[in-house]
Design a protein around this nucleic acid. Structure first.
Lengths: 140, 140
DNA sequence: TATATATATCCGGATCTATGCATCTAGTCA
DNA sequence: TGACTAGATGCATAGATCCGGATATATATA
């Protein structure tokens, strides 16, 4: 029973759902990417990614200083089926569209500028990236 | 985002998965039934059922002293789809078969005896019902 | 009305989880 | 080698969750 419980627990967090949604829409992201797009700190991003990986939802790949995470492939086809459903579920939620906008914006910035860095991610969160996407109020 | 998080959190507990599994295999059960079959106390059974109801997975119906819970129908068809998948997921786990045995045994007992009562449920847990199904060790 | 009972909820404590900060690890590059 | 950096992890704390036992609520029945 342990496996199923851990799987659903991993999905029981807003930040993790956002991360999963991003990785269902983009092949792979590093920790900096997640920081910039979701607008969270480094340790939080790293830990949530680790949780999703331990639940069998993500795989990671190291390249130089960066850790790249990508969706699946979980060995369990039922978990995969749940995630396919999750794609539909998350697509209808209000944040979904906004997150994809931020993803797009971030990728453009990081493509031009230097390689993906923590500082660039922080700047993106504080600057234009956040400005253009956060409509009402701010992130808390 | 709240809705999805609450939905998956409700599934992130072993006892709740067991209850859901039972209600995916039997039209409706009262709190006593759940106590007897899963082998948990009254307040725990009541609380977990309430959690599942609040997550939109169960509906309840009052009749006299008893509260009967049944699966769905969640208004969200995607949640329903997840539960259909869950049926397959849970069916493969070792406890699943055992729980259905206990369900069957309990229904026979309670059909003969008086109506469903807490005492009868406790007796079932402590007596034959538990003996025939708990193979190795006991439920803590 | 008075008693009995199934279920819901409250109350404490124990345990788990999330988070920010600081530090550690392991790559890169000069 | 030494400075620098992305990412992982230790630590402490706040908050959430879980649990058993006690109590409250609502209904049935005498």
């Amino acid at each position: 029973m342990k496996v199923a419980v851990r799987f659903f627990r991993a999905l029981g967090d807003e930040a993790r759902l956002k991360i999963l949604w991003l990785l269902l829409n983009h092949r792979e992201l590093c920790v900096c990417d997640v920081m910039a797009i979701v607008g969270i700190g480094q340790s939080k991003a790293s830990r949530h990614l680790a949780t999703l990986r331990q639940a069998g939802l993500l795989t990671d790949r190291k390249e130089g200083l960066w850790s790249y995470y990508s969706y699946g492939p979980s060995s369990d086809e039922l978990a995969s089926a749940h995630c396919e459903l999750l794609r539909s579920t998350l697509a209808r939620l209000p944040d979904a569209e906004e997150l994809l906008d931020r993803l797009k914006g971030w990728l453009e910035v990081s493509r031009h500028g230097a390689s993906c860095t923590k500082d660039a991610a922080s700047a993106f969160v504080a600057g234009k990236g956040a400005m253009t996407t956060l409509r009402k109020g701010n992130n808390r």
